[in-house]
Structure formats: structure tokens, C-alpha cells
């Protein structure tokens, strides 16, 4: 699997296959974000399309030093989705039928929260297998370190270090690509 650096340089060189590789890797996350934000599949498909077309047109603007490719793509997708929501709000005056699109589905979340989940999930996928499995038991099954040691057969010390390192990795990634609380209150999309 190419690193973001390699993918970015192929993309900058105008290699369409690099865009396809980015789409294969991150298209599902972009599509998920758009669906969560827009609450409607057709708009989410459009926004996914707009995002990758914009990524292609703006490929010179991606700097791997400043964040991962997923973070960059989700940033574009978020802007496209917000544009779509604004235009839906504007067009709402045109016809009643649009209203249906605008009623937020139950549990609609802030864009920041969905992005947080997607980047942390992506980082989970990059953790070494044992570290990831240990964290999943802690997160999803609410097991204590002792219980995890018992379930996995790993020594308690190993469980502790997997969880500590795993959490540190997730935190680092979240601080790079997500929206940690410090920046949460100032972003221009906050008003939404």
C-alpha cells in the first residue's frame, strides 16, 4: 500500500490511477461523512463525486506534512456538504418538496464529530493487530485490563502497554486530523 506521500506525489504528477487509489481507500469514509451530514443518499453520492473531482483539481494543494490524505479529503467533503446544505436551504423557498431533505434525521451530528470518528477509525485500522484488538475490547466491551488479559491470554503488562500506546496513537492522529476541543470553538463551520 502506498503511503500518503507516494500517493500525493503521483496525484500531483497527474496520475489518474492515484486518484482511484485514494478513492478505493477513502471513498467509503467520504461517502459516510456526506450521508451523516446530509441525511440523504442521492446528495451524499453527489458530494462524494464533487469531493474527488475537487481533490483532483486541487491536487497541488495537498501537503502530506500538514495532515493525512483522509483528513484532507474529509475537509473537502465537509465543505462540499455544507455548500449543499446552504443551497438546499436557499432552494427551500423554491419548492415545498425540498423541506423533506432539510428535516434533520434523528441524531444528526456535527461535522466535527463525524470527522473525529472517521479519522480515529482509520487510525485504528493502522494499529498493529494485537494493539487494535486490545483497544476494541476496552472500547466496545468495556473490559478492564485484567479482563482483557484473561480473554486474550496476554500478560497484564502487555495489555497495559498495548492500550497506552494505542490510545497515544489515536490521540496523536485525532489531534492532527480531527477536531480536538481546542479548535472546536473557533472553526468557521461552527455556526452549523
Amino acid at each position: 500500500m502506498d503511503s500518503d506521500d507516494e500517493l500525493a506525489s503521483r496525484l500531483r504528477g497527474g496520475d489518474e490511477r492515484a486518484l482511484r487509489a485514494a478513492y478505493d481507500r477513502h471513498g467509503a469514509a467520504v461517502f459516510y461523512l456526506a450521508q451523516r451530514l446530509l441525511g440523504n443518499r442521492a446528495d451524499a453520492e453527489d458530494v462524494t463525486q464533487l469531493t474527488f473531482v475537487a481533490a483532483w483539481t486541487g491536487r497541488d494543494g495537498y501537503d502530506p506534512q500538514r495532515g493525512t490524505m483522509l483528513g484532507w479529503l474529509l475537509g473537502i467533503a465537509r465543505r462540499k456538504a455544507v455548500d449543499r446544505m446552504r443551497s438546499a436551504a436557499r432552494d427551500d423557498r423554491v419548492t415545498e418538496t425540498v423541506r423533506a431533505h432539510l428535516v434533520p434525521p434523528d441524531g444528526r451530528e456535527t461535522p466535527e464529530r463525524v470527522v473525529d470518528r472517521l479519522v480515529v477509525a482509520d487510525e485504528m485500522g493502522r494499529l498493529p493487530e494485537e494493539q487494535r484488538r486490545t483497544l476494541e475490547l476496552a472500547f466496545f466491551d468495556d473490559l478492564t485490563h485484567h479482563q482483557i488479559a484473561a480473554v486474550t491470554g496476554l500478560p497484564l503488562g502487555t495489555v497495559k502497554s498495548h492500550i497506552r500506546r494505542g490510545m497515544a496513537n489515536l490521540r496523536r492522529r485525532w489531534e492532527v486530523d480531527g477536531a480536538p476541543s481546542g479548535s472546536r470553538s473557533v472553526g468557521p463551520t461552527r455556526a452549523l
Binding site: 470518528r117 480515529v120 485504528m124 483497544l135 489515536l170 485525532w174 480536538p180
Partner: peptide
């Protein structure tokens, strides 16, 4: 925060 996000994954 990370643990909270983790629980939603």
C-alpha cells in the same frame, strides 16, 4: 475524548 470517540467506532 479519544475513549469516547473510540466507543462509537
Amino acid at each position: 475524548d479519544v475513549a469516547g470517540i473510540g466507543a462509537e467506532l
